[in-house]
Deep mutational scan, measured.
Amino acid sequence: VTTYKLVINGKTLKGETTTKAVDAETAEKAFKQYANDNGVDGVWTYDDATKTFTVTEMV
């Protein structure tokens, strides 16, 4: 189990959260659900070296 981080660069919501998951795919599903629940829709990137997902909403 690995800890993954999500950085949110939203128009109205900004911040970070973490989740523990067995792999990046599982973490991504959890983060996308979290973003969807919070009304964040944007471009996703993932950095495997730092285990960090970033979602950026276009203005």
Rank of each mutant, 00 (worst) to 15 (best):
V1M: 13
V1P: 13
T2H: 15
T2M: 14
T2G: 07
Y4E: 01
Y4Q: 01
Y4W: 06
Y4R: 00
K5R: 11
K5L: 08
L6T: 01
L6E: 00
L6I: 03
L6V: 03
V7K: 09
V7M: 07
I8D: 01
I8K: 01
N9E: 09
N9I: 15
G10E: 03
G10Q: 05
K11A: 08
T12G: 10
T12R: 08
T12E: 11
T12M: 11
T12L: 09
L13I: 14
L13P: 04
L13F: 14
K14H: 12
K14M: 09
K14R: 13
K14T: 12
G15D: 11
G15E: 10
G15S: 15
E16V: 14
T17P: 03
T17R: 12
T18H: 09
T18E: 15
T18D: 05
T19P: 01
T19W: 07
T19G: 04
K20E: 15
K20W: 15
A21E: 03
V22E: 08
V22Q: 10
V22W: 09
V22F: 13
E25M: 10
E25Y: 12
T26E: 10
T26Y: 06
A27M: 01
K29R: 13
A30E: 12
A30W: 15
A30G: 04
K32G: 03
K32P: 00
K32R: 13
Q33V: 10
Q33Y: 05
Q33D: 08
Q33S: 15
Y34W: 10
A35S: 05
N36V: 12
N36P: 01
D37W: 07
N38R: 13
G39H: 09
G39K: 08
D41H: 13
D41T: 14
D41P: 03
G42V: 02
V43W: 08
V43D: 07
V43I: 11
W44T: 01
W44Q: 00
T45V: 12
Y46K: 01
D47P: 00
D47G: 02
D48M: 09
D48W: 06
A49R: 08
A49L: 08
A49F: 10
A49C: 07
T50P: 02
T50R: 05
T50L: 07
K51T: 03
K51I: 03
K51H: 15
T52H: 02
F53S: 00
T54S: 06
T54V: 06
T54F: 09
T54E: 05
V55A: 02
V55T: 02
V55I: 08
T56L: 06
T56Q: 07
E57K: 04
E57T: 08
E57W: 10
M58T: 14
M58L: 11
M58I: 14
M58Y: 12
M58N: 13
V59Y: 12
